Amino acid sequence: MAPEKTEEKEAQTHTPTREKMEKREAQTHTPTSETELEQLKYNGKWAAVITILTFTYGDVTVAHSLPPDPRQKDWWMTWSPYPILVISMLYIAAVTCWGPRYMAKRKPIGGLRPLMMAYNAFQVVFSFWMFWEGGMGGWFFEYKLMCEPCDFSNNSKPVKMMNLGYWYMFSKFVDFIDTVFFVMHKKTSHISLLHVSHHALMPVGLYYGIRFQPGGHGTLMGLLNSFVHAVMYLYYLLAAMGPKVRPFLWWKKYLTTLQMTQFTIVFFHALALNVVECETPLPPPLHRWLMGQAVIFFGLFSDFYIKAYQRKDKTKQKIRAEGMSNGVANGKLHTVTHEVMADVFPCVPAGFDEVMIRDRIRAHH
């Protein structure tokens, strides 16, 4: 009798989970609606507008008021901002129009989990390398917190910082892969206006910083951003390893706080130049751009924080009110997925929600 009851209990417990997975899978395989495609086109249109405005500001204010760094005159992708603008515009078109339209009546591409985990691992190493190089290039020991001028000499440290700036700009093209995975998985809700705008405008805006001021005060943004990206991709890499790792990921909620802290520091670090008198005046156009970017991204992540965690708190209150516990009650499984997080945090591995579900079932037992 005991074994039969145990098997019956397991069947009753796991059946809703399988049904929910099958239902979600069926929904995933549903052809993309015209409404979704139109929304993506809308996101792409405004992302293109924001990217072009960023390009215009850099071309009108920075490029016409500062001399370019002569050390980069023969470097690929630094002789002109137009190739970078074209690549960003092609990215927007590919992820908001061409790609989703191609995948509209097709099933999501499977078998990408190992590739995505490898991508996350690469991003962890690449981001931490940039953080370390930025620190060793000046910020750990030599740079002043305020009024650090850009050194255009051919000494080893300035050249290290200049090279790092180039690789940092290159890393923003690598970040495009985040959205490519969304398209391949038909996660159209993740391809939001904020997500696409953020990815598209970064390389365009960074061109003007790298080409005209590849060192000094403004590079703090790249240092902090590289560290945050290393932590962020590490979280997703570890989370994809399964429920055994999840108890050690209690720091998930602080990822967003870390992001907002980063943008706050960058904003006030740039703003301080308006009240601090520097011996070597630093270019105002670049610092206005830094402040503007910090405000935009701070707003983006503040919106994320409200959506992701206030919604999660409301869900918990509802579960308690209905007498539920451990996310399982009345034969139904309740779980908070990463739908909202993917709008701004990239590359949630395929199958991650299933890992969350299995983890909650084990915790219930």
Results as ranks from 00 to 15, higher is better:
residue 227 F to C: 02
residue 129 W to A: 08
residue 195 H to F: 05
residue 190 H to N: 08
residue 329 A to L: 01
residue 87 I to F: 14
residue 204 V to G: 01
residue 226 S to H: 04
residue 169 M to C: 09
residue 45 K to T: 13
residue 317 Q to H: 12
residue 93 A to R: 00
residue 230 A to L: 08
residue 293 Q to K: 00
residue 140 F to R: 01
residue 67 P to D: 02
residue 87 I to P: 09
residue 87 I to A: 11
residue 6 T to R: 06
residue 42 Y to L: 06
residue 328 V to C: 05
residue 180 V to F: 13
residue 268 F to E: 04
residue 139 W to S: 03
residue 14 H to K: 11
residue 273 L to Q: 09
residue 255 L to C: 06
residue 297 F to K: 06
residue 39 Q to S: 06
residue 342 A to G: 12
residue 154 N to S: 09
residue 142 E to A: 10
residue 49 V to C: 06
residue 141 F to S: 13
residue 52 I to M: 13
residue 171 S to Y: 06
residue 156 S to K: 08
residue 101 R to N: 11
residue 103 M to D: 13
residue 252 K to W: 09
residue 162 M to W: 09
residue 286 L to H: 00
residue 32 T to I: 15
residue 241 M to G: 04
residue 8 E to A: 14
residue 230 A to M: 15
residue 197 S to F: 01
residue 31 P to T: 08
residue 133 E to L: 11
residue 190 H to T: 06
residue 275 V to L: 08
residue 77 M to E: 03
residue 289 W to A: 00
residue 142 E to V: 13
residue 142 E to W: 05
residue 160 K to W: 09
residue 192 S to P: 05
residue 318 K to G: 08
residue 32 T to V: 14
residue 135 G to N: 10
residue 306 I to G: 01
residue 112 L to M: 14
residue 157 K to D: 03
residue 156 S to M: 14
residue 269 H to D: 06
residue 363 A to C: 02
residue 92 I to T: 06
residue 118 A to W: 11
residue 350 A to V: 14
residue 313 D to T: 07
residue 73 K to I: 15
residue 79 W to F: 02
residue 268 F to W: 15
residue 183 V to I: 08
residue 37 L to T: 05
residue 208 Y to F: 15
residue 124 V to K: 05
residue 333 L to I: 15
residue 205 G to Y: 10
residue 49 V to S: 03
residue 214 P to N: 07
residue 166 Y to F: 12
residue 150 C to I: 01
residue 173 F to Y: 14
residue 63 A to D: 02
residue 348 V to T: 14
residue 227 F to K: 07
residue 114 P to V: 09
residue 228 V to H: 13
residue 141 F to D: 12
residue 178 D to Q: 13
residue 312 K to T: 10
residue 222 G to S: 15
residue 70 P to E: 04
residue 295 V to E: 06
residue 196 V to N: 02
residue 330 N to M: 07
residue 129 W to G: 01
residue 318 K to N: 09
residue 141 F to P: 02
residue 41 K to A: 12
residue 193 L to E: 01
residue 150 C to E: 01
residue 190 H to E: 15
residue 112 L to R: 09
residue 190 H to I: 04
residue 239 A to L: 08
residue 175 D to K: 02
residue 37 L to W: 10
residue 318 K to Q: 12
residue 179 T to P: 02
residue 317 Q to I: 10
residue 304 F to N: 10
residue 165 G to V: 03
residue 184 M to V: 04
residue 244 K to M: 05
residue 97 C to K: 14
residue 240 A to F: 13
residue 1 M to R: 07
residue 20 K to H: 10
residue 327 G to F: 07
residue 62 V to M: 00
residue 270 A to H: 00
residue 349 P to Q: 10
residue 278 C to N: 01
residue 135 G to K: 12
residue 4 E to S: 11
residue 259 Q to Y: 07
residue 336 V to H: 09
residue 93 A to S: 05
residue 332 K to R: 07
residue 30 T to H: 11
residue 175 D to P: 03
residue 182 F to Q: 11
residue 284 P to T: 00
